[in-house]
Amino acid sequence: MTDREIGGTPIFEVEGAHYAYPGYPECVSGVSFRIGPGERVALLGANGSGKSTLLNLLDGLFSPCSGRIAAFGKTLTEEALETSDFGPRFRKEVALLFQNSDAQLFCPSVEEELAFGPLQMRWADDEVRRRISDTLELLEIAHLRHRTTQALSAGEKKRVALASLLAMGPSVLLLDEPTAGLDPRSQAVLLDILDGLHEAGLTLVTATHDLTVLPHLADRVLVLGEDHRLKGDGAVEAVLSDTALLLEVNLIHAHSHRHGALLHSHPHQHVVGHEHGHEE
């Protein structure tokens, strides 16, 4: 399955998109899919499969070398994003959480960070301050308001980065490895927040290679292969039970280990616990 029927007008339509960084081999190869409003989709793939690049393409930061990407029915091009009506609306509605929080948090204080996006929207200062307060309360980080961004822990940085996006009131969140590098507690807090946002109607598109958090992040999975092509599109349960597919895209591997004197192999997903049997 390479595409699924979605309800309502699609938010994203990707048709045969190819992308290569200048001077490098192609990292997105002929990918096609559609994402509908309110969906919770994961882009699943091994390192270097093109997940982050695809998120950047969906956010209009890069333009495909060939093929087409449309958002809200309009083709994403540099020209379209520079127009006064579509550009600001797209930037308000679609927000991208970068994997590197240090890149995302470029303002000196948490308050300034949250204010950056709303101020680019030319909203009044009072409205900006109201949104900052509400968002900080929502993510339970009001105590960080006047802290410098460089003095935050990794978990706090991730929450502030997410808050800086939510302050703009987006309807679509693109998340690049949101749980990477977080301790279990920060990870659980972030997953709860994302769950709440999905319940509130936001569309979530998450790039990840972490199979353990996949059921918490998505209902539908787009699987990218190491050849940068779309290898699968289906429900989380179906993808996680498709051992052949996961082996093919290098997300699980034939794992060997010993039980006393017995050495044996089986597909291994690196989930928190796994059960298996073997013959004596």
Binding site: N56, D59, L61, G87, P88, R91, K92, A95, L96, F98, A103, Q104, F106, E111, E112, A115, F116, G117, L119, Q120, M121, R122, D125, V128, R129, S164, L165, M168
Partner: peptide, 17 residues
């Protein structure tokens, strides 16, 4: 950083509180 700024609506003109 530049991509993160673009993503949040930066168009070359900075607005501050």
């Amino acid at each position: 950083v530049y991509l993160a700024m673009l993503s949040r609506g930066f168009t070359g003109d900075v607005h501050l509180l």
